[in-house]
């Protein structure tokens, strides 16, 4: 049987490998390749988990669990180049599984991640707006939230996001449209106030 990857590759080489090459090495249980995959994608996976639960500890647990799923059964992944999207989808599903059993704790931690470069008084307003938007996004239905997160926050193309969610591009666009409509309805009451706060902070 031909080797899956050139096993002469070492940590420094993994930095220039594509996701597909790293995933093939992970299939051969190469820990260095797996570490390279983790370093490359853990922040994005963490962010997707956080968008769903807004809790640092749970997001870390979910991120770890998503990577362990890949390590324990890498053959579930059909396309090695889509590993980032796959991990994000797994993380989103894991959050939903977790909170089906345990009610979501609405912990207001937005102030911890607010832009530290802003003045103290402006940070308060910006943190309030950010917290409100985070909460509204987190309350979207699961698939709408994932579509919005992948496209708006993680800047995936519609094609890549649709591939990550294993749906058609049309279905993804439908989810995005519904998510945006729902956000507009939810923010209709205080949207102007929030926009004014952003504008004031921007001045």
């Amino acid at each position: 049987m031909a080797p899956l990857v050139n096993m002469a590759l070492r940590p420094l080489d993994f930095k220039i490998c594509t996701d597909a090459e790293l995933t093939m090495a992970v299939c051969a249980q190469d820990q260095m390749a797996f570490s390279a995959l983790i370093s490359r994608h853990y922040q994005a996976v963490y962010r997707v988990a956080w968008r769903a639960c807004r809790n640092d500890a749970d997001s870390e647990d979910v991120t770890q669990e998503a990577f362990l799923k890949l390590w324990n059964n890498p053959s579930q992944l059909r396309d090695g180049n889509a590993v980032k999207g796959w991990l994000m989808r797994v993380a989103s599903n894991l959050v939903m599984d977790r909170f089906r059993l345990k009610p979501m704790q609405d912990i207001e931690e937005a102030a911890q991640v607010a832009d530290q470069s802003m003045p103290a008084d402006a940070t308060l307003d910006h943190a309030h707006v950010a917290s409100r938007i985070d909460a509204v996004v987190a309350n979207l239905p699961e698939r709408q939230r994932l579509a919005l997160t992948l496209v708006h926050f993680e800047h995936l193309t519609n094609i890549a996001a649709a591939a990550a969610m294993e749906i058609s591009v049309d279905a993804l666009e439908s989810l995005l449209a519904r998510a945006r409509r729902s956000l507009k309805q939810t923010l209709a009451a205080d949207g102007k106030h929030l926009l004014a706060a952003i504008t004031r902070d921007g001045d």
Binding site: V113, A130, I133, D134, F153
Partner: peptide, 10 residues
């Protein structure tokens, strides 16, 4: 408004 959402950092 979406652009003003938090950027969570581990």
């Amino acid at each position: 408004l979406l652009a003003s959402a938090s950027t969570p950092v581990p």
